[in-house]
Amino acid sequence: ATALEARKGPFSTDEPQTRRADVLSYNNFYEFGSGKDDPAANAASLTTAPWSVEIGGLVAKPATYALEDLLKPATLEERIYRLRCVEGWSMVIPWIGFPLADLISRVEPLGSAKYVTFETLVRPDEMPGQRGLFQPLDWPYREGLRLDEAKHPLTILAVGMYGETLPNQNGAPLRLVVPWKYGFKSIKSIVRIAFVEAQPKTTWEEMASHEYGFYSNVNPEVDHPRWSQATERRIGEGSGLLAKRRPTLMFNGYGDEVAGLYAGMDLRANY
């Protein structure tokens, strides 16, 4: 990882940041294995340069960008966000990135575009989770946002954290960060972005649609069918084994910013 310059961005929390070592060693990135420590062990083999991102679908200016060109016009900001995993743990991470809205305005989506889809790299040679008989998910990993969610100022494309470029296990070289949704929405190592009219099917939704919905907003009132979402364990908080659970906040504490996006919607049905 190399050092990254970034100015302080808005929306940052002043809660204590999670230890960098924990954020680097405790990951869900099934392309590198489904164990929490698999990504840290296996992701070093990933080649992140050169890297290109194909942007297409319902846009006026479809293009395949080299990562450098994608980043050239961007002003990098540090955003210290809470991250809440659907599994019931959370972290506070100082991301470095830029608003996804900036990129969206550059490619000029057509009026018919209602959703944005994202895809992660498929490269079995370098991603052991994509090799062999036992593959947990159907690749490529796919995620999606409603266009207004994607354009929300909280939503960023991140290229770094803790003052440096992203480690591979955290989604290098380019990942999404949507802090009011469960972590799996924040797709890693993005190679494709497309604008579409119909609500896309996402990977976890296809895997188990009764457990993982398209929206997947952090919501302590709506339990995962197999576990409660009312509380969470903040990684590194307390002293190891004695870490206490803390209440999970609606929209992960970003309700003031994003609740309006869902006005009038039944969040129990649209989980």
């Binding site: 924990d22 929490k36 590194g236």
Partner: peptide, 15 residues
């Protein structure tokens, strides 16, 4: 290991 903070980020879950 858990008492000595050697179980990684989420020691409770590991234990």
């Amino acid at each position: 290991l858990g008492l000595n903070d050697q179980l990684g980020a989420d020691p409770l879950k590991v234990l």
